[in-house]
C-alpha cells in the first residue's frame, strides 16, 4: 500500500511505525556487552549478599527464627502483634512454605535495603534542589507505573535467570516511594526551625542530621513501609525469572492451574506482608522523636 511509497512501515492507524521497542532492545544489548564486567561484579555481590542473608534466615530451625521475628514485633508494637505474628508463622510452616517464605523475606530485605540506600540520598537531593526534583519526578512516575514484570525482561537479559534479576527489578520498582516520601518529609519540615539552625551558625550537614532528618523521619518511615510492601509484591512477580521463594511456587501453581498450591503460597505472602507492614509502620511512630514531632504538629 502507501507504505511502499514512503518507504516507511505504517501502523494500522496510518501513523508511521515508531521503532521505540527495538531502540530500547538495541540499547539494552549495547549496555549488556559494554558493561559486561560491571554487571558480572554486581551479580556476584548481590548473589553473595542474598546467600548470606538467606543462610541467616533459612539456616536456623523454624522455631528459632519465628520467635526472633515475634520478638521484633513485640519490640515494635506490642504483645498482640507478637502473638499474631507467631500464629501466622506457624500457619506458614504448617502449609510447608516456611523455607520459601524465608527465601522471599531475604529477597525483600536485601532489595529494600538497596532501594533505600539509593532512594533516601536521592530524596534528600531532590528536596534541596528544585531542578533535581523536577527532573526525577517523571522518572519516578515511569518507574512506578510501568507494569512491574516489564523490568524483568532487561534484567534477565543482563543478569540471566535467577535471584539477581529479581533483586534488581525489585529495587527499581520499589525505589520510587522511598524517594518521594523522603523529599516530601524534608520539604515539610518547618522552615523557621531550619532557619533557626542557620541563624545560630549550624552547617548544612548538621542541619540535615540534627533538624531535617529527625523531623522528617515519620514521613520517611512511611516511605520505608511503602518500599517494603512494593518489594514484597515484586518479589512474588520475580518468581517468573527463577528468583525462587514464594513467587516460584505461585508461578508454578499458575502454570499448572494448581489451586491448592497457589492458595497456600499466596496465603504465606499475605501473612508475610501483614507482618512487615505492621512492624515497619509501628517502628515509624514509636520513636521518641516521632512522638514529639507528632505531638508538636498536633498542638499547632
Amino acid at each position: 500500500m502507501n507504505a511502499s511509497i514512503f518507504a516507511l512501515d505504517m501502523t494500522d492507524e496510518g501513523v508511521p511505525r515508531l521503532p521505540l521497542g527495538s531502540w530500547v532492545s538495541d540499547a539494552i544489548s549495547w549496555i549488556t556487552s559494554t558493561f559486561r564486567g560491571l554487571f558480572a561484579a554486581i551479580k556476584s555481590v548481590l548473589e553473595g549478599a542474598y546467600d548470606g542473608l538467606d543462610t541467616v534466615l533459612g539456616g536456623p530451625p523454624f522455631w528459632f527464627i519465628a520467635v526472633a521475628l515475634a520478638l521484633i514485633a513485640l519490640f515494635a508494637k506490642g504483645w498482640k502483634l507478637a502473638v499474631g505474628s507467631l500464629v501466622g508463622f506457624v500457619v506458614i510452616a504448617g502449609v510447608g512454605q516456611w523455607g520459601n517464605a524465608m527465601d522471599s523475606l531475604s529477597l525483600v530485605i536485601l532489595a529494600s535495603v538497596i532501594a533505600l540506600l539509593l532512594a533516601v540520598p536521592l530524596g534528600i537531593w531532590a528536596a534541596r534542589n528544585d531542578r533535581v526534583s523536577q527532573a526525577i519526578r517523571p522518572v519516578l512516575d515511569f518507574m512506578q507505573t510501568m507494569p512491574a514484570f516489564v523490568y524483568l525482561i532487561p534484567t534477565v537479559v543482563i543478569f540471566r535467570v535467577g535471584v539477581v534479576p529479581g533483586i534488581v527489578a525489585t529495587v527499581i520498582f520499589a525505589m520510587a516511594p522511598g524517594v518521594r516520601f523522603t523529599e516530601l518529609g524534608l520539604r515539610q519540615v518547618d522552615r523557621e526551625v531550619v532557619e533557626a539552625g542557620h541563624a545560630f551558625g549550624s552547617s548544612e550537614g548538621r542541619i540535615l542530621r540534627q533538624i531535617q532528618l529527625p523531623l522528617a523521619m515519620p514521613t520517611i518511615m512511611a516511605g520505608v513501609n511503602q518500599v517494603i510492601m512494593l518489594a514484597l509484591s515484586m518479589v512474588v512477580i520475580s518468581g517468573m525469572v527463577g528468583a525462587g521463594g514464594l513467587g516460584g511456587d505461585v508461578v508454578q501453581a499458575l502454570n499448572r492451574v494448581n489451586v491448592s498450591l497457589g492458595f497456600e503460597a499466596g496465603l504465606a505472602v499475605v501473612i508475610l506482608a501483614m507482618f512487615l507492614d505492621r512492624v515497619t509502620s509501628a517502628l515509624g511512630t514509636r520513636s521518641k522523636t516521632a512522638k514529639a514531632v507528632a505531638a508538636a504538629s498536633a498542638s499547632h
Partner: peptide, 17 residues
C-alpha cells in the same frame, strides 16, 4: 552567627524532638 548575633523567631522555631 555562633558568637555575635542570635535570633528569636515568631513561631519559636524550637526543635520539637
Amino acid at each position: 552567627r555562633q558568637r555575635k548575633v542570635s535570633m528569636v523567631f515568631q513561631h519559636f522555631a524550637l526543635l520539637p524532638h
